[in-house]
Design a protein around this nucleic acid. Sequence first.
DNA 1: ATGGGTCCAA
DNA 2: ACGAATGGACCCAT
Length: 545
Amino acid sequence: MSDGPLIVQSDKTLLLEVDHADAAECRKAIAPFAELERAPEHVHTYRVTPLALWNARAAGHDAEQVVDSLIQYSRYPVPHALLVDIAETMARYGRLRLEKHPVHGLVLVSSDRAVLEEVLRSKKVQPMIGERVDADTATVHPSERGTLKQALLKLGWPAEDLAGYVDGEAHPITLAEEGWALRPYQKEAAEAFWHGGSGVVVLPCGAGKTIVGAAAMAHASATTLILVTNTVSAHQWKQELLRRTSLTEDEIGEYTGTKKEIRPVTIATYQVMTTRRQGAYRHLELFDARDWGLVLYDEVHLLPAPIFRMTADLQARRRLGLTATLVREDGREGDVFSLIGPKRYDAPWKEMENQGWIAPADCVEVRVTLRDDERLAYATAEAEDRYRLCATTPAKTRVVESLVRKHAGEQILVIGQYLDQLDELGEHLGAPVIKGETRVKERERLFDAFRSGEINVLVVSKVANFSIDLPEAAVAIQVSGTFGSRQEEAQRLGRVLRPKTDGRGARFYSLVSRDTVDQEFAAHRQRFLAEQGYAYQIIDAHDLA
DNA sequence: ATGGGTCCAA
DNA sequence: ACGAATGGACCCAT
């Protein structure tokens, strides 16, 4: 205890000494209940948040385990007030429960009368509550099940939802038996979801989230509605389900702009759900079309606001959310928690790496210095132009060139967000550029050439964030990114994480202009991956060999 | 019917 | 706070 890697402070921050021998072990221990806030070179700052504590609670951790972890790794005596606070916060989850009453239907039950009285007095909660059954029980209109959970979470008293689910229309689904097997973590994830009832499974890019979905469908053996972000993803779900389950072509429908098939398993885009046709919402048509036994949300970190609203009305159906990064930049993690459900499973990226499911990766932040004239232009630029100015400095082009030379012979992706910059890079490198306007046919041709090694360098725009059809590479060079998007960074690193046949590691370079907002945004982007144990080595562009 | 193109919302 | 990609609607040519 006297020389642990962690400093625990009463303001709920945890300081982790990165170079300490026990740092990795400690990171793993605190990850379930703390979120990484800052990650400079030597000391990382984590914060113990209520939501993280409640997720830990829902996953079966108790306050004692959390407290033990803190005490075990702490360098100094742990502030008592913090321990008390952690125990109290965790105990808040489950003090209120939603249950099914044999006579009164959906009820809110409390094991602490004062808490019930407190929340019933809230203006937000009051209209959702029906009559009082007894001192500890109040009825709730079934249609308010979701919105009530949202409101209670905001009040700091998240309800545990034990009201159960409708079975939905049964439909036989089994996993295909030939030629493959569920990986252990995929099986665990599907089971953790099934026993939890509904909630979110978090797995790194390329870890087979679709397969976890398929396994969950096999558990449910019921009609399933799958919601996805784009049509490419819809096709891939269909292909994967055909390959991995007993489902056949005519049991799987696509419900998109062009096709309107409703089948026992239906894959719909988020967008088609939110558009109106002659004043009527499409989603009503879709939700009422079948008695769905399971609703599956792909890329739950991208759920648009209208889908949250609809999901509030779907609380009697089992819901599974899938994502690589539960963090959202819009702060709606609480809505994911209350409307989809708590985190049921996550596999830390580094553990997956240790087990060989994803390739080991070195992350390198390369700092470039602006020329004097650029610095002056930057200093005098309007606030809204500044990021673009520093993110697209010509100095980066030269660095990309030398990195490409250094990795000659390897498959390299250059990823950025400004089309001008990417076009220029493509020209300098003599490499094709893939952007939004690139036709699907052309994309496929280039992807094939890249896969076969005919092309070694590919420059890609934000299409890399969406189209999961992008081929895997060994080296990724990021030249600019969306302000501070953590999930984008994770997605881009994911591009190089497919295990290499020769067992070699992958490289991820992030090019950053020194002493500018580019540097700030880069630091923010890196946080999620730092939380997963990826350390960015910082080097100066001049020191590139 | 089907494939392609343009425009627009969020 | 921004630029870019997207899906979907609609239109036109086969």
